[in-house]
C-alpha cells in the first residue's frame, strides 16, 4: 500500500487550500480592521453591542431545539429499533426520505400550514374557532428547526441501539432485570454515544442557521446566523462577520468537548448515517 501514498496529493492540496488556508483567512479577517492592522476591535464590538443578546437568543433556541429533538427522537429511535425487521427498514427509510427533498421547500411548506390564511387557520375558521397567530415568532422557528433536524437525532441513536448485541439484553433479563430495568441499566447507558453524536448533529446547525429563521421567523427573530449573513451580504463588513464566525466556532469547540468523550470526533455521526443509507 505504500506505493499509493502519492494518490492523496489532490486531496492534500484540497485540504490545505479549502480547510487550512480558508480558516486561517477567516481568523486573519477577524483580527484585523478595515485598515488591515491587527486589532481586537471586532470582538470588543461584538461583546459590547446588541449582538451579544442575539448570541444569547441563538443559544437559547438551539438549546430548546436540541432538547425537543432528544425528547421526541429518543423514544422514536427506540420504538423503531423494536419493530419487526421488515417494518424497521421501512420506518428508518421513511425518516430519511424527506431529507432527500429540498429542505427549504419543506420548510417553506410550513408557511403554507401556519400562515394567517394557512391550513390551520382555514380549518379553525371553518369550525368557527378563533384564529391563531402562529407564524413569524420564535415558536415557529423552533418548530422549523425540530422539523429539519429531528432525523439527525434519530438516526445515530437508532444505529447504536440497533447494533446493540441482543445477547446483552437477554443477559440482563437472565440476571433478573425486568423490561424497564433492562432499559435503564443496559440499553440507555449503551446508547449514550448515539445520543452524544445526535446532540452535536442537532446543536451545531441549530445555532448557526439563518435560513430557517428568515423563512419562519420573518424579520422578528434574528439569530447569530442572520447577523453574520447580513455582514457579508448587506453591510459588507467582512471583518466583523469573520469575528462572529470565530465566536461560533468556539461554541462548536465547546459542544465537541462536551460530546467528544462519548463519540470520538463525531465520526460516529457521519459514518452511522452513511451506514443507514446503505441499508
Amino acid at each position: 500500500m505504500r506505493s499509493f501514498k502519492k494518490a492523496a496529493t489532490p486531496y492534500f492540496i484540497w485540504a490545505l487550500l479549502f480547510i487550512v488556508i480558508s480558516l486561517l483567512m477567516v481568523l486573519y479577517y477577524a483580527f484585523t480592521g478595515e485598515s488591515g492592522n491587527f486589532s481586537t476591535e471586532n470582538f470588543v464590538r461584538f461583546f459590547a453591542g446588541s449582538s451579544l443578546g442575539t448570541l444569547w437568543r441563538s443559544l437559547k433556541i438551539a438549546f430548546f431545539t436540541t432538547l425537543i429533538c432528544l425528547v421526541v427522537g429518543y423514544p422514536l429511535a427506540y420504538a423503531i429499533s423494536r419493530l419487526e425487521a421488515r417494518y424497521r427498514t421501512l420506518a428508518i427509510m421513511l425518516i430519511m426520505v424527506p431529507m432527500w427533498m429540498n429542505f427549504l421547500l419543506r420548510t417553506y411548506a410550513w408557511v403554507t400550514i401556519l400562515s394567517k390564511n394557512g391550513v390551520i387557520n382555514s380549518f379553525l375558521r371553518y369550525i368557527g374557532a378563533a384564529e391563531l397567530d402562529l407564524l413569524y415568532r420564535e415558536g415557529a422557528v423552533i418548530l422549523g428547526m425540530v422539523y429539519n433536524f429531528l432525523p439527525f437525532m434519530v438516526l445515530p441513536i437508532f444505529t447504536v441501539i440497533d447494533k446493540m448485541d441482543e445477547g446483552l439484553i437477554e443477559a440482563a433479563a437472565d440476571l433478573g432485570c425486568n423490561k424497564l430495568m433492562t432499559f435503564i441499566k443496559v440499553i440507555f447507558p449503551l446508547s449514550l454515544p448515539g445520543v452524544a453524536s445526535g446532540i452535536s448533529m442537532v446543536f451545531i446547525p441549530a445555532i448557526s442557521t439563518f435560513e430557517i429563521t428568515t423563512l419562519l421567523g420573518g424579520n422578528k427573530t434574528n439569530l447569530i446566523g442572520n447577523v453574520i449573513e447580513q455582514q457579508f451580504t448587506v453591510t459588507g463588513d467582512w471583518h466583523y462577520g469573520s469575528a462572529m464566525s470565530v465566536v461560533l466556532m468556539v461554541f462548536l469547540l465547546f459542544s465537541l468537548i462536551f460530546t467528544r468523550g462519548e463519540d470520538e470526533m463525531g465520526t460516529g455521526s457521519v459514518t452511522s448515517t452513511a451506514e443507514v443509507d446503505r441499508e
Binding site: A15, L17, F18, I19, V20, I21, S22, L23, M25, V26, Y29, S200, I204, P205, I207, S208, T209, F210, G225, I228, E229, F232, W238, G241, S242, S245, L248, M249, L252, L256, M265, G266, T267, V270
Partner: peptide, 25 residues
C-alpha cells in the same frame, strides 16, 4: 489528517461558507 478532514463536517455550514468567500476574495 482525519482531524482536519473532520473540520468541514463539524463546522457550521455558515462558517465554511464564510471561509470560502474570504478565500475567493
Amino acid at each position: 489528517i482525519l482531524g482536519i478532514n473532520q473540520i468541514p463536517v463539524l463546522n457550521p455550514d455558515i462558517v465554511m461558507a464564510v471561509g470560502l468567500m474570504v478565500l475567493y476574495r
